[in-house]
Design a protein around this nucleic acid. Structure first.
Length: 247
DNA sequence: CTTGTCAGAACTCGGCTAAT
DNA sequence: ATTAGCCGAGTTCTGACAAG
């Protein structure tokens, strides 16, 4: 017995019957499609979650399609219904990694006084280095691995790009430092000019990245703790900038 | 009947190793 | 030093199956 016949036993007028029929059609037609889509999204999320787990525990090279499939209880072939290839999974995991980094940096700089760029730089550098050391496999994936994943994140059609936003946060701090008078010496060339926020930001990033990557890749060296290195790097840099301002 | 999902088989490729 | 064979990995093809 179909839905129409069921409703014929009720004392309903024709308009009500049509409305109910439409509702039934909606439940039959659209809701299952929504359910399927929800299930698909759910599985996609599960694939990404397990991928992150594998990368966090064993590193990116350990993320194989067969291992991933085994862990989620499907065949390797099924993974290709949800992702174009392994690179697309890696790009998506990278994007989540950048998003986590952005959250850490935003949270740290947000706690510092807005009108104190030196304090914001200290907070940002500390958070960055702490993130790298506490999430070594994620850091390796997004900054020490294949740079094409960064490009993939930056060129997403939906514009969801936490990598560029994190970079923008660093440039913002650099700009505030310059505005506040923390200007590096001009004159590395014959035609002196003021350093740009981008140049200062990239130099700062090189220092922070240097500490994290040395700590992750070289167990014996450096011997100084990351905490000491961060402190010395930032304070030396700030004093240098202040001195250049005075001179 | 159509559509979407799944798994098994097979293909291709790169890295490693033993034999020559 | 070179080559053949093996192995593991990513990917594709194809047919079975279930849901609508």
């Amino acid at each position: 017995m179909n839905s129409i016949h069921k409703h014929e036993h009720c004392s309903l007028n024709s308009v009500q019957s049509i409305l109910i029929l439409m509702a039934v059609k909606k439940v039959q037609g659209i809701l299952p499609r929504q359910r399927r889509e929800a299930a698909k999204q759910n599985l996609r999320g599960q694939i990404l979650a397990v991928s992150r787990e594998i990368i966090a525990e064993e590193g990116f090279p350990a993320l194989t399609m067969r291992k991933l499939a085994e862990k989620i209880g499907y065949s390797a072939a099924s993974l290709y219904l949800h992702f174009r290839n392994r690179d697309e999974i890696a790009s998506e995991v990278s994007r989540v990694g950048y998003a986590d980094l952005l959250t850490a940096l935003s949270s740290a700089t947000g706690k510092a006084r807005r009108d104190d760029p030196a304090a914001r730089l200290r907070a940002l550098a500390t958070a960055y280095i702490q993130f790298g050391l506490e999430n070594p496999q994620t850091y390796r994936l997004i900054f020490l691995g294949d740079t094409s994943y960064l490009q993939a994140v930056a060129s997403r059609p939906d514009g969801d790009d936490p990598a560029t936003r994190a970079y923008g946060l660093l440039i913002e701090v650099a700009r505030d430092l310059i505005t506040a008078g923390f200007a590096p010496p001009k004159g590395i060339s014959r035609r002196p000019r003021a350093v740009t926020p981008t140049e200062l930001a990239e130099t700062l990033w090189a220092g922070m990245h240097g500490i994290v990557s040395l700590k992750l890749t070289c167990q014996q060296f450096p011997t100084a703790s990351a905490e000491i290195m961060t402190h010395v790097m930032i304070e030396t840099l700030l004093r240098g900038l202040e001195a250049s301002q005075a001179g």
